[in-house]
Design a protein around this nucleic acid. Sequence first.
DNA 1: ATAGTAATTGTTACTTAATATTAATTATAA
DNA 2: TTATAATTAATATTAAGTAACAATTACTAT
Lengths: 152, 152
Amino acid sequence: METRIERIKKQLHSASYKLTPQREATVRVLLENEEDHLSAEDVYLLVKEKSPEIGLATVYRTLELLTELKIVDKINFGDGVSRYDLRQEGAAHFHHHLVCIECGAVDEIQEDLLEDVEAVVERRWNFKIKDHRLTFHGICYRCQAKVEEKTV
Amino acid sequence: METRIERIKKQLHSASYKLTPQREATVRVLLENEEDHLSAEDVYLLVKEKSPEIGLATVYRTLELLTELKIVDKINFGDGVSRYDLRQEGAAHFHHHLVCIECGAVDEIQEDLLEDVEAVVERRWNFKIKDHRLTFHGICYRCQAKVEEKTV
DNA sequence: ATAGTAATTGTTACTTAATATTAATTATAA
DNA sequence: TTATAATTAATATTAAGTAACAATTACTAT
């Protein structure tokens, strides 16, 4: 955890940004809630718990900065809110998501899975892929279990 | 074109909705700009050209309705605006997109390409897939050509 | 250390996409 | 025709995100 923050600090420095206390507090919230898909507002409220003096605009600016440095990815699941998701360390591409249309849960897929598809797209469409967004909408394993219970 | 509107009319009717003049005007704009990825505001302005009396909320409601019936898909490319994209007739799944990070162009891929990946996801994550969103970010063939010109 | 410069922040105002409200209109059914 | 339901236009409202700007903090060069 600490080492992860250290590495993020270095990433910022090599792009000539500083890891200010506000930025560190924001990064810590993201690390502590890595499983979730927090909106900027969510992050703001969580950061405020430990650093009440922080301003909303600073959180937005920090998230924008982290997005720019590919430390987090900004994603949109169709509700009107952008969400921020820490990238796995060293991951070249953004991971995928499973959005349950029953319960709204969002699960992550860290495996790439798209290598073959991307090779086809690069060749057939002559498109130089830099990143991707892949989200599946459907029924998660938990909700499938619930339906079975009812029908039994 | 006319037959396509007829079929959309039937889809609406079988869900007990009417194809009002306002809804028809909106659908026509979507059909006439099938290549584009219009925002609700874009659609509103285009519909207004031919039906100046239409209200913005009606356009929003119509787009929401068409989304619900899977006639169009709502998509978000990261700018703060939702865009609406006609689904290919009979297509089970939403098509994919290529977003150019140089010029902003959005191209479409109508081929599925995800069949194998979806089979893996359904099995390994026990997730019942109903739909998907796949967008690649990168450099389109046009911008690649431009860079080559410069370096020659 | 000190003055000066640049980066960063907090507050507040503002913009704008999208939704909610409501009265009026249109279509449908009895 | 009268009543009922669906749909609409106009307007007000909400809320995510951005912009402006003065104040603070950090760094640089003397």
